[in-house]
């Protein structure tokens, strides 16, 4: 039968959501009222405080989902597949935030909404791969067959993540070169601005965790509904 909702999970959802909201409020205060302006870009530079953390949060999500997909393939345990699918779906939301906010920033800084540059194109391909992943989940009914196919797509998608991440080092791109000190060793950005990027990454990670817990619970309910439906038809 369908499991009753666990109070512990509810507590985790509310806890993560509250922590995320508090941290986001603190970050918005820093972004708008404390940080200095950027000399050349004007107000629009503040988009990067969501653009960069959204990208990193989605990459971490896709990577964790890839690890879970490998675990599914080695164990055939559907709980790994359910969790990987939840994480991929939520990561896709943040990947879209990254791409669209980047495009709005580009309209002012480059004078164009879009260019077929290595970084932008590989990110678009990444989004299309994970949209394909979600479509595949809807189109295959048999759970183990669906899980195996989706695990393969999730692992393949992670190869593109590596390309997106390294593209600004490997190729000469329109997109700015790395600015975070974890990649450059420092000196590219005001440390106060960089600190807010990391705090916002933490806030978005908490939002992601909240979404993933909700989505994973829905996924397990869907699996239970499937088995209950089979029982009803068999009886």
């Amino acid at each position: 039968m369908i499991k009753e909702r666990s109070g512990k999970t509810d507590l985790m959802i509310y806890g993560f959501a509250a922590a995320a909201m508090l941290l986001l409020a603190y970050n918005l205060y820093k972004i708008f009222l404390v940080l200095p302006d950027e000399a050349l870009q004007g107000a629009v530079y503040r988009i990067m405080f969501f653009h960069i953390p959204a990208a990193i949060a989605s990459f971490i999500g896709f990577f964790v989902a890839m690890v879970l997909s490998v675990l599914y393939l080695s164990s055939n345990d559907l709980k790994y597949d359910a969790l990987a699918s939840s994480i991929n779906e939520v990561s896709l939301v943040f990947a879209c935030v990254n791409l669209i906010t980047g495009s709005i920033w580009a309209r002012i800084i480059w004078g164009i909404w879009w260019t077929w540059d290595y970084r932008l194109t590989s990110m678009l391909v990444c989004i299309l791969i994970y949209f394909g992943y979600l479509l595949l989940r809807r189109s295959v009914d048999e759970p183990t067959h669906r899980a195996r196919l989706c695990a393969a797509v999730s692992i393949f998608g992670c190869v593109d993540i590596a390309i997106v991440w390294k593209s600004i080092e490997w190729f000469r791109t329109q997109h700015p070169a790395p600015v975070l000190s974890i990649r450059t060793g420092g000196g590219q950005m005001d440390p106060r601005m960089e600190a807010v990027i990391y705090w916002n990454l933490l806030a978005l990670a908490l939002v992601m965790a909240t979404f993933v817990i909700i989505r994973a619970r829905q996924e397990s309910t869907e699996q239970e509904i499937d088995s209950l439906r089979r029982m009803v038809h068999a009886s």
């Binding site: 302006d37 950027e38 870009q41 004007g42 107000a43 629009v44 530079y45 503040r46 988009i47 969501f50 653009h51 959204a54 935030v97 669209i100 906010t101 709005i104 920033w105 309209r107 002012i108």
Partner: peptide, 15 residues
């Protein structure tokens, strides 16, 4: 700085 404020607003709305 209010330069490009509208586009910053669009960016935050999307985010």
């Amino acid at each position: 700085d209010e330069r490009n404020f509208t586009y910053m607003f669009y960016g935050f709305v999307v985010a």
